[in-house]
Amino acid sequence: MTDSLCLPLLTLTMAEAQLCGLQDEFTCSVCLDTLTDPVSLHCGHNFCLKCLSNYWDQSQVCSCPQCRHTFTTRPELNRNTLLNEVIKKLKKTTLSPPPPQNYAGPGDVECDFCTGKKFRAMKSCLTCMASYCQTHLQPHYERDALKHHKLVDPDRNLKEKLCEKHQKSLELFCKTDDSCICMMCVVTGHNGHKMVELETEREEKQKQLGATLSNIKRRLLKREKTLKEMRRAMEEMKVS
Score class of each variant (00 low, 15 high):
Arg79Met: 03
Cys125His: 03
Met122His: 05
Pro98Gly: 00
Arg74Phe: 08
Asn78Tyr: 14
Glu76Trp: 10
Ser131Ile: 01
Asn102Arg: 09
Cys128Lys: 00
His140Trp: 02
Glu142His: 01
Asn102Met: 07
Leu82Glu: 05
Asp112Arg: 09
Ile87Ser: 04
Pro98Ile: 14
Asn84Asp: 15
Lys147Ser: 02
Lys118Pro: 15
Lys91Asn: 14
Leu137Val: 06
Ile87Gln: 04
Met122Arg: 06
Leu137Ile: 02
Glu110Gly: 03
Glu76Asp: 04
Asp153Gly: 01
Ala121Ile: 05
Gly105Asn: 13
Val86Trp: 04
Gly105Tyr: 06
Arg79Lys: 14
Phe119Tyr: 12
Thr135Phe: 05
Thr72His: 12
Glu142Arg: 14
Ser96Asp: 01
Gly107Met: 05
Leu90Met: 10
Lys118Trp: 13
Tyr141Trp: 04
Leu151Glu: 01
Lys117Pro: 15
Pro154Ser: 03
Lys118Asp: 15
Gln138Glu: 03
Glu142Tyr: 01
His140Phe: 01
Thr135Arg: 14
Leu95Asp: 11
Gly116Pro: 15
Lys118Gln: 15
His149Gln: 11
Cys111Ile: 02
Leu77Glu: 06
Leu83Lys: 09
Ser96Phe: 07
Asn84Val: 00
Asn84Lys: 09
Leu82Val: 13
Asn102Ile: 02
His149Asn: 13
Lys92Ala: 12
Arg74Glu: 15
Asn78Gln: 15
Lys117Trp: 03
Phe71Gly: 10
Glu142Pro: 00
Met129Pro: 11
Leu77Gln: 08
Leu146Cys: 09
Leu82His: 08
Ser124Lys: 05
Lys89Cys: 14
Thr127Gly: 13
Tyr103Met: 04
Tyr141Asp: 05
Val86Cys: 09
Leu126Pro: 10
Glu142Cys: 05
Lys150Ile: 11
Arg143Pro: 00
Gln134Lys: 14
Ala104His: 10
Gln134Ile: 10
Asp112Gln: 08
Lys147Val: 02
Ser96Met: 07
Lys88Thr: 13
Asp112Ser: 13
Gln101His: 10
Thr73Gly: 01
Lys117Gly: 08
Lys88Glu: 13
Leu151Ser: 03
Leu83Met: 15
Leu90Glu: 01
Lys88Cys: 04
Tyr141Phe: 10
Arg79Thr: 13
Leu126Ile: 08
Lys150Trp: 00
Pro97Glu: 03
Asn102Phe: 11
Lys117Phe: 02
Glu142Leu: 14
Glu110Pro: 00
Ala145Arg: 00
Val86Leu: 15
Tyr141Val: 03
Thr135Ala: 08
Cys111Gly: 03
Asn84Tyr: 05
Asp153Gln: 09
Lys118Arg: 15
Lys89Asn: 15
Phe113Ile: 06
Ile87Gly: 05
Lys91Phe: 02
Val109Tyr: 07
Ser96His: 06
Lys150Phe: 01
Ala121Met: 07
Ala121Pro: 03
Asn102Tyr: 06
Asp108Met: 04
Asp108Glu: 13
Thr127His: 07
Lys123Tyr: 10
Arg143Ile: 10
Glu85Val: 06
Arg79Asn: 04
Pro106Ile: 00
Val109His: 07
Thr72Lys: 14
Glu142Asp: 08
Glu142Ile: 06
Leu90Lys: 03
Thr81Cys: 03
Asp112His: 12
His140Lys: 04
Asp108Asn: 11
Arg143Gln: 09
Asp112Ile: 05
His140Gln: 01
Thr135Ser: 06
His148Asp: 06
Phe113Lys: 15
Cys125Gly: 09
Gly116Val: 11
Ser96Ile: 14
Arg74Pro: 12
Asn80Ile: 06
Lys123Val: 13
Ser131Leu: 07
